[in-house]
């Protein structure tokens, strides 16, 4: 059992999400940084998609009620157990009564805490991922609060270390490879150029639904109202005020703004590490390249974690 002593900025239960329901208005949700989440599970011997805790920006304090092996991965948050530093992207033993703390997100935005066998949450459409907008999954569909306790099954832990070269790099300047979105060529020529040149900065309006960006204005050639149309995580929407919105794991399933860019699948996990203030560059990717990158990355991480793909 694990007890939340302080929830910090936010902590929710997440797994691999509930794909396949966007036509009903249900986003996939799931761990915003799928790769760090999967690696946290890997380090305690779990299948990669086992429910874990997603900790946003730091400030979280957890108390363990039994001896356990746990793992942390993702944002660099200066984690400590009883005041002693523990390394990011590592697994370690904790004893009943120990307190794990995350200080603040020095690099990145979200850290994952995995327990052997995962944590229990309420399932909706095959996933316990918390989706706050509709109160789905997790613990009563909400973010965790101080004094919440979560059960975790009694599973014999299998501590594993991440082999060399598999640990992702965290950065406060996130580079996302992207291709032209459906309405890219309806944007002004200046905007088309700016998108791939100057970095944007994520504003305070940044959460699991999306990140509002500030930078060069991104504007349509001609003001035009668009019929509501499908969106995906990684779609860069361009509203008339010129400040684009990057849709994330919990992003709306449809929207009525021009879709300027689409982040390639192999880079979607990086969006989970965007916090207010993060710099974001979009790098142009050509369709075929994206497929090659994806297939290489899937082989690479799939050989480490059974069934994992981006």
């Amino acid at each position: 059992m694990i007890e939340i002593r302080q929830p910090g900025t936010r902590v929710t239960i997440q797994d691999a999400g509930r794909p396949g329901y966007r036509h009903l208005g249900i986003p996939k949700s799931g761990a915003a940084d799928k790769l760090s989440f999967a690696l946290a599970n890997f380090m305690v011997g779990n299948p990669w998609n086992t429910p874990a805790l997603e900790c946003v920006l730091g400030g979280q304090h957890f108390k363990f009620h039994k001896d356990l092996t746990v793992a942390i991965a993702g944002a660099e948050m200066w984690a400590q157990v009883n005041g002693q530093n523990v390394e990011n992207f590592s697994s370690f033993k904790v004893r009943a009564g120990d307190i794990l703390t995350f200080s603040f997100a020095r690099i990145g935005c979200r850290a994952y805490l995995a327990l052997p066998g995962g944590v229990e949450g309420s399932e909706f459409l095959g996933s316990v991922s918390t989706y706050l907008q509709a109160g789905l999954g997790g613990l009563q569909g909400r973010a965790l609060q101080a004094r919440d306790t979560l059960k975790s099954p009694d599973v014999k832990p299998q501590a594993r270390t991440i082999p060399k070269g598999y640990k992702p790099l965290m950065s406060n300047h996130v580079v996302l490879r992207a291709v032209e979105g459906p309405e890219f060529y309806d944007l002004s020529l200046d905007s088309q150029r700016h998108l791939f040149v100057n970095p944007f900065r994520a504003t305070q309006n940044t959460n699991r639904m999306g990140a509002r960006l500030k930078g060069n204005l991104v504007q349509p050639k001609v003001a035009h109202s668009m019929t509501s149309s499908p969106l995906l995580p990684g779609t860069l929407q361009c509203p008339p005020d010129g400040q684009p919105i990057l849709a994330m794991a919990d992003g709306h399933c449809t929207g009525g703004y021009y879709r300027g860019l689409q982040v390639i699948r192999a880079d979607l996990w990086q969006m989970g590490q965007i916090k207010p203030g993060t710099r974001i560059s979009f790098r142009r990717s050509i369709g075929e390249d994206a497929h090659e990158v994806l297939s290489r990355r899937n082989v690479f991480y799939g050989s480490l974690m059974e069934g994992f793909s981006f």
Binding site: P19, G20, R22, H23, P182, T227, S228, S229, P230, L232, C253, T254, R265, A290, H291, L294, S295, N298, S309
Partner: peptide, 19 residues
């Protein structure tokens, strides 16, 4: 197909190009 989403004047078909 991973997602099939109808719109008013479009439809989105989402899949994993690796599979």
């Amino acid at each position: 197909w991973e997602e099939l989403v109808p719109g008013y004047n479009s439809l989105l078909a989402y899949f994993c190009p690796d599979k």
